[in-house]
Design a protein around this nucleic acid. Structure first.
Length: 434
RNA sequence: GGAGAGAUGGCCGAGUGGUCGAAGGCGCACGCCUGGAAAGUGUGUAGGCGGUGUUCCCGUCUCGAGGGUUCGAAUCCCUCUCUCUCCGCCA
């Protein structure tokens, strides 16, 4: 793994905070199902600081003597210059030895810190698996069907507009080909969501790279820990697993002005995931694909606004389903089911009649300063001080899964699919598919 | 893909081995001047790390990034990234 991004000496996690809150930090790891680490980390940091101090002292001596050489030469006193040169020669190796030791220790510490999970928000419930997530609220009662509702792939294949076999022939499993009205419906969903967030919710639409450097994935936290989940190209770039990566990294290595915050970005992009750990799960249909389309929301804000921004974003994502009149519930993820890079995550799960289950369709998370530290993104507050920004991200919402939700919730007994009112303008006024 | 030029503080821009973290200008902040403002004038104006220091100080590092040469590097060497110009190719 290459040296993490950021200025030399920048640490990926606030070691001073760990030092001051050792118990809290280890408790946090425990809730994440990990062993305590403060002892190891602080010992390493002590060692590192000792070497840095020793290096600084040696440099101080060297600089003072070197300065004298310059002065002697300026006065034409070459003999004295020679004498001091001989004296300072041994200091050179001393500086190098300490410098190398300090660098190695900093790298070692930073590597360890870069693997640490984020701190959990106080609201996050304890738990080890999906079943421990807590439902916050539900919206709309699932509709009762007068017939046995089908799964989306049954509907799509019967319509002749969803072709997994054609996709498999050219790309392998976990890909799909949509055509005709279903392809247009996917496009309509994306347009509808983008229009909603840009017109009603104040987000700026962004078109950004889908192929990014390793540092960008490091910045948002997908690397170094989760490299097997994404696709790497032959030239060392990566296909984004979510446009959270592109949108969040818009501010990498920047110092922002407080008055410009919050920044709110949205984007409709394909997402690429290897689904390496998901073999055998959701193999039928287009619920879990290597490539899918998603509208993403990213907010960059000051620490004090992080809390309210997450609620706002959650509301923006819910609004999509409310306008589409699809039943859903909001859950808060438990400590064991959360992503390592996040402090608190709400999932929105849409009702899928064909599966007779709620399935994740959006995830809205706060990252705190975790990503900001990795990207080295700060802001200058009104007092002129620099501090790390807070970042948040959320799907607003997953287009592929929204397509599934629409198809299953709006299916008719004759195999047709009614088009939700809100989408009809995007479908040329079409009222049903099939 | 080939040839060349470049990257210095918030911005512009000097600086080719020795008190250079960096002249000068612009901008910004505060003060003086003014009835008020402009003009003029004075002062200040990066960040990281460390220090059993804590409104102020000390040390160190940072002139795109990383490494090297040297007693000493913005300045010399190597690698990388990015920008620009010309040629080729191309949607």
């Amino acid at each position: 793994m290459r040296r993490p991004a950021g200025e030399p000496g920048t640490l990926m996690f606030d070691i001073k905070w760990i030092r001051a809150n050792a118990d809290l930090f280890d408790q946090n790891l425990k809730r994440r199902g990990m062993a305590p680490l403060t002892g190891e980390l602080l010992a390493l940091d002590d060692e590192r600081k000792a070497k840095v101090t020793a290096m600084n002292e040696a440099q101080e001596k060297r600089n003072a003597l070197s300065k004298q050489i310059g002065q002697a030469k300026a006065q034409g006193d070459d003999a004295r210059a020679e004498q001091i040169m001989a004296e300072v020669g041994s200091l050179k190796t001393e500086v190098q030895v300490f410098e190398e030791a300090a660098r190695n220790l900093t790298e070692e510490l930073n590597l360890k810190l870069s693997f640490l999970p984020n701190l959990l928000h106080a609201d996050v419930p304890d738990g080890t698996e999906e079943a421990d997530n807590v439902t916050i609220r539900t919206h709309l009662e699932p509709a009762k069907f007068a017939f046995a509702p089908k799964e989306h792939f049954e509907i799509g294949e019967a319509l002749g507009q969803m072709d997994f076999e054609a996709a498999a022939r050219m790309a392998g499993s976990r890909f799909v080909v949509l055509n005709g009205q279903l392809a247009r419906l996917e496009r309509a969903l994306g347009q509808f969501m983008l229009d909603l967030h840009t017109r009603e919710h104040g987000f700026t639409e962004v078109s950004a790279p889908l192929l990014v450097r390793e540092q960008a994935l490091f910045g948002t936290g997908q690397l170094p820990k989760f490299s097997e989940d994404a696709f790497e190209t032959r030239d060392g770039r990566w296909l984004i697993p979510t446009s959270e990566v592109s949108l969040t990294n818009l501010v990498r290595e920047q110092s922002l002005d407080q008055q410009d915050l919050p920044l709110r970005f949205t984007s409709l992009t394909p997402c690429f995931r290897s689904e390496a750990g998901s073999a055998g799960r959701d193999t039928r249909g287009m619920l879990r694909q290597h490539q899918f389309s998603k509208v993403e929301m990213v907010v960059v804000t000051t620490p004090d606004k992080s809390e309210q921004e997450q609620q706002f974003m959650l509301g923006c994502a819910e609004k999509v389903l409310q306008l589409l009149e699809i039943p859903y519930r909001v859950v808060i993820l438990c400590s064991g089911d959360m992503g390592a890079t996040m402090r608190r995550t709400y999932d929105i799960e849409a009702w899928l009649p064909g599966q007779n289950a709620y399935r994740e369709i959006s995830s809205v998370s706060m990252a705190g300063d975790y990503q900001a530290r990795r990207m080295n993104t700060r802001y200058r507050n009104n007092e002129g001080k620099l501090d790390y920004v807070h970042t948040l991200n959320g799907s607003g919402i997953a287009v592929g899964r929204a397509l599934i939700a629409v198809m299953e919730n709006y299916q008719n007994e004759d195999g047709t699919v009614t088009i939700p009112e809100m989408l009809r303008p995007y479908m040329g006024g079409l009222e049903r598919i099939g």
